[in-house]
Measured scan of single mutants.
Amino acid sequence: NITNLCPFDEVFNATRFASVYAWNRKRISNCVADYSVLYNFAPFFAFKCYGVSPTKLNDLCFTNVYADSFVIRGNEVSQIAPGQTGNIADYNYKLPDDFTGCVIAWNSNKLDSKVGGNYNYLYRLFRKSNLKPFERDISTEIYQAGNKPCNGVAGFNCYFPLRSYGFRPTYGVGHQPYRVVVLSFELLHAPATVCGPKKST
């Protein structure tokens, strides 16, 4: 009989979020998941679920829940969905086509923008091939755009693969920082350890 609540607040209220190319993952297990707390949290810009209804989450049990978190621009949030393409979905964070879970995003301009620009948040701009679902690539190898080998030196046709967002408070909404948490639900042939409040007695 599990009684402790799942530590969703640790994920959602973290002081610093990860850059999207180096997205953070927390495994959540052996706890009671009260999703209504999240669902009623006012400032969400997006709360979209795939393969599961957000209002039914509290009735369900899962083997594991993974909480992935990172920061992207407002106009990139739409790429955090199954079957998407674009710089983020291709080179930074890719969801599987059969994704079961929820994508939760909110504007973090007050936290993550600075006058003069916040350059701490990076994304991958160049990559030889697209990421596989949930693949994480933190390499900083110089990207070779031409035929000539770069030998690890940036220059003509040789690019550092990461780019900084440089968030400023005055940017338009599409270019403002958004914090994103992706909850993915794993249902294995194993005992369920993460259940909603109704199922955990």
Rank of each mutant, 00 (worst) to 15 (best):
L5M: 15
A145Q: 03
R73N: 13
V32M: 08
N120G: 12
I2K: 15
Y119M: 06
L122Q: 01
K110M: 10
G174L: 08
P7M: 12
N120W: 14
V173Q: 07
I28M: 11
S53H: 05
V32S: 07
V20P: 01
F156H: 02
P43H: 12
I104F: 14
P149C: 06
P197K: 01
S139A: 07
G155Q: 15
R16M: 10
N40G: 02
A18N: 05
L125C: 04
N120M: 15
I2D: 15
E10M: 01
G146S: 08
N64F: 07
Y178F: 04
K56M: 04
K114E: 00
I2Y: 07
T201W: 11
Y21W: 02
F160T: 07
G117P: 00
R73S: 01
N120V: 13
K198C: 11
T85E: 01
K148C: 06
D97F: 03
K198D: 04
Y121I: 14
Y121Q: 02
I2S: 11
V153G: 12
L125F: 03
N120F: 02
T100L: 14
Q144H: 04
T55F: 14
V194T: 10
V115D: 00
N147R: 10
V153H: 08
T201Q: 05
S184H: 04
R16E: 06
V153F: 04
N130T: 01
T3Q: 04
L111I: 12
L60I: 08
N109C: 04
R16T: 12
K198L: 04
H189T: 14
T170N: 02
I142W: 02
F185L: 03
T193G: 12
K114P: 00
N120E: 10
T170P: 00
H175N: 13
A154G: 12
S184W: 12
S164G: 12
D59T: 02
E76Q: 02
N58M: 14
S200Y: 05
K56E: 03
A42Q: 01
F41N: 00
V173F: 08
L111N: 09
G83M: 15
N151V: 05
S53I: 14
T170C: 03
Y39K: 15
K132F: 00
I28W: 15
F45K: 02
L122E: 06
V115F: 00
G146R: 13
K148Q: 12
T85K: 14
V173A: 11
N120S: 09
D9V: 06
T100M: 10
S29Q: 15
G117S: 03
E141H: 11
G166C: 06
V194A: 06
A42S: 03
N87A: 14
A192G: 12
I142C: 05
Q144D: 04
K128P: 03
E141C: 03
N151W: 05
S129K: 14
N130S: 15
S184L: 15
V32F: 06
K198I: 10
E141K: 01
I138H: 13
N75Q: 04
A46Y: 10
L60N: 00
N109W: 00
N64T: 06
P149E: 15
Y66V: 06
T193M: 05
N151A: 15
A33P: 13
N1Q: 09
L125I: 09
S164M: 07
T201Y: 11
R16K: 13
N151F: 02
N75H: 00
P169T: 04
H189W: 08
F44R: 02
R73M: 14
S184G: 04
P54N: 12
A46L: 15
G116M: 00
K132P: 02
T85D: 04
S164H: 08
I142Q: 08
Y143I: 04
V52M: 13
P7G: 10
K132D: 12
V37Y: 09
N118T: 05
R16D: 01
K56L: 02
T193Q: 00
G116R: 00
